[in-house]
Design a protein around this nucleic acid. Structure first.
Lengths: 234, 234
DNA sequence: GTAGAGCCTGAGAGGAACCTGAGAGCCCCT
DNA sequence: AGGGGCTCTCAGGTTCCTCTCAGGCTCTAC
């Protein structure tokens, strides 16, 4: 990690599907967050009081009440806890909008963990509770700015598509470390992605073409394991 | 943010609908204000004494008394605290007009956060308590003057409708930063807007036609995310 | 040195996201 | 009551992403 948090942020994950909760919790813990979870609205309300999270990830469909209701019942203290709503793609999307104020956000299922984590960081950063951690990811002469979504190598701006961006971002978060195919697929692609794992190769190829056009190769293949971001070596 | 306040302004939000309070409070916090809220007139009066806000956002319909009464009971100190009244569209509108003193203002429900924040800033600026922050928003060769509501590109004046103006204003407040569709819709459209999210595309199209007629494109689409105001790239 | 596994990349189908013109409803002003 | 302007809806057309697939290349094990 580029700058480990002094006091880790507490995140409350609320969803009734244990699978989803597990996947998200694991990913967030891995990223250095302190995580607690709840499966119902009632549990969530109790957890907010005890756990005092800095942010909630809140599914809209809960067994006992809608996610909105949870948000509403939090009342005044609510304003202190930004929420990221999880919603199915088809419907509700419009419904969410009116209820998300400037600080909230929503993510449609299925999503990639990369995306969820990125949004969490954005909100924590903006809510000022975060240390003034730069929103700039840097490795060698590559820069990635989350605010503006601008990417450059050696000062030359580079246009990336959404997937290319997520992939590069994940690599930049774990510089020099070897990331397995599974790790990358799990993090960068939607969690229910069931397609051909070879997409990864295609996208690595795309990224290389765009990045390495302006300097020595940075994305290295680690045969039969995965990929790693490394400085070019003599 | 472009110019973080030295000593943040304190805003007191008074409304009996928790939803509204939430939405406003969150939005204002993210804008760098210090916010406190009250749900009744009595609470409001107490909060004014303790919290000493620089400005109040005050709903006219309160469970225990009318917003006007709150204003009146503040008596002498009242003059120090400008008020923005919230009122339902239908009636009262005329009534408000007569009762607002020089420094006050009113906004009819439903409103857009963009509009509310803009009015708050205007009042704070005029009440002299604000830093001499310019009321002129500038990006590249685009200028937007909040006082006169004039917009120009490269010196050429441009006529904008109300919605176009709010949209451009929001973009100018967040130059270079990528704004998601949700953020823009939440901020620029009324908080209860439940319609088709594609209005945004229409209005971006309108704005582009008017703005980019006089120079290189400034409003850039960030596919599957949102829009950003950027300088044209070579 | 050679076979086989692992990896790279070009081409392209399909689809998602986006742009824009046309027009209906509404409000306000006259 | 009529007209003009604004906001929003809708549909057609377009762009450009994503993922699949196949052929060829590279590395490693033996």
């Amino acid at each position: 990690m580029n700058s480990p948090e002094q006091t880790p942020h507490r995140i409350l994950v609320v969803d009734d599907e244990p699978n989803i909760v597990d996947v998200i919790s694991m990913a967030l813990r891995f990223q250095g967050f302190e995580v607690q979870s709840a499966g119902t609205g009632a549990e969530a309300l109790a957890a907010v009081a005890q756990f005092k999270p800095h942010l909630m990830v809140l599914d809209i469909m809960l067994p006992d009440m809608e996610g909105f209701d949870v948000a509403q019942r939090l009342g005044a203290q609510r304003a202190q806890v930004p929420i990221i709503f999880l919603t199915a793609r088809d419907a509700t999307e419009d419904k969410v909008r009116g209820l998300t104020s400037g600080g909230d956000d929503y993510v449609t299922k299925p999503f990639s963990l990369e995306e969820l984590v990125a949004r969490i960081r954005t909100i924590l950063r903006r809510s000022g509770q975060s240390d003034a951690e730069s929103n700039l990811l840097v490795f060698e002469d590559v820069e990635l700015d989350d605010e503006t979504r601008e990417v450059s190598r050696a000062g030359v701006p580079i246009d990336l598509t959404a997937t290319e961006y997520r992939l590069l971002r994940f690599l930049l978060l774990n510089p020099r470390r070897v990331l397995t195919r599974a790790q990358i697929l799990d993090q960068v692609w939607d969690y229910d992605f069931g397609g051909d794992a070879r997409v990864l190769e295609t996208y690595v190829s795309y990224l290389r073409r765009k990045l390495d056009a302006h300097g020595p190769p940075l994305i290295h293949t680690v045969r039969s394991v995965g990929y790693a971001l490394r400085a070019a070596r003599a």
